[in-house]
């Protein structure tokens, strides 16, 4: 797990190719969604419909700590990378910590220049989705 500020810093310090490499690493590091969670996911309810790419999010909480599972198909590595940043930043935090994460987190990564604003809208939607749903998740027993 890397903190929001650490992630922002690593992107801000990277040049253009460095950002592409970072995104690629995040994309490759997105954990596979376990079968147990895949079977619970509803392909409609858990889909982030604002994203043109199929992105499915499942949020759990255990002992107060949040785990985020995200399913993004391989042919969309950029979206996988962006979603993986969010999973990395927020898994293990409490719902309150996630809810109070800086609203400009995504824009501060400085990726709009690399990806264009059009590609950033979808990921902002995933960010909003995580923030708005995290308080509603129930403890896993």
């Amino acid at each position: 797990m890397t903190s929001v500020e650490e992630i922002v810093r690593e992107f801000q310090e990277a040049d253009r190719q460095g950002m592409i490499d970072l995104l690629k690493d995040y994309s490759e590091d997105l954990p596979e969604v376990p079968e147990r969670v895949l079977s619970l996911m509803d392909r409609d309810v858990n889909r982030v419909h604002e994203c043109e790419t199929p992105v499915f999010i499942w949020i759990e909480r255990e002992d107060g700590a949040v785990t985020i599972f995200a399913d993004v198909p391989g042919p969309y590595p950029t979206v996988r990378g962006l979603v993986s940043i969010l999973v990395n930043a927020f898994s293990g935090l409490s719902p309150q910590e996630i809810e109070s994460a800086p609203p400009d987190f995504i824009s501060r990564l400085g990726l709009a220049q690399l990806l264009g604003t059009r590609r950033m809208w979808g990921i902002s939607a995933v960010y909003s989705r995580i923030k708005s749903e995290v308080g509603k998740t129930e403890e896993v027993s």
């Binding site: 592409i20 690629k24 994309s27 042919p75 590595p77 950029t78 990806l115």
Partner: peptide, 8 residues
């Protein structure tokens, strides 16, 4: 469209 595809 996806800027990472070439890299992977």
């Amino acid at each position: 469209e996806d800027i990472l595809l070439y890299e992977i």
